[in-house]
């Protein structure tokens, strides 16, 4: 599982989470900041995304404590590293 695969998963699941709220997610770049104000999501939505990613990948990169991330690429890297 490489970062591109995780990024695709993030885009798919975040679009679903936004759609549940009646929002449309703009296209994500690797450098998109989750909570920077450019996406129609809040911290509860981001928390939801992490639960879904753990279910889909079987990995929880935060199990040993918080890992700093702000962008799509940084989060994808955490999951890809946990899976490696």
């Amino acid at each position: 599982m490489d970062t591109a695969a995780v990024r695709a998963m993030i885009a798919e699941e975040l679009a679903r989470i936004a759609a549940d709220k009646g929002e449309t997610l703009p296209p994500l770049d690797p450098g998109t900041v989750f909570l920077g104000g450019g996406l129609p999501i809040d911290s509860l939505d981001l928390a939801t995304l992490l639960v879904v990613l753990e279910q889909r990948t079987g990995f929880d990169p935060f199990r040993a404590g918080f890992r700093q991330f702000t962008t799509v690429e940084e989060l994808a890297t955490l999951y890809a590293a946990a899976a490696a």
Partner: peptide, 29 residues
Amino acid sequence: AAGLARAAVAAGVTRISGTPSFWRAFLMA
């Protein structure tokens, strides 16, 4: 948290009191 983070940076705030959940989101934003 994103809007508050922008306001905090723009105004150069020096004191913030918030919940742990606020601070987690603030650090990310």
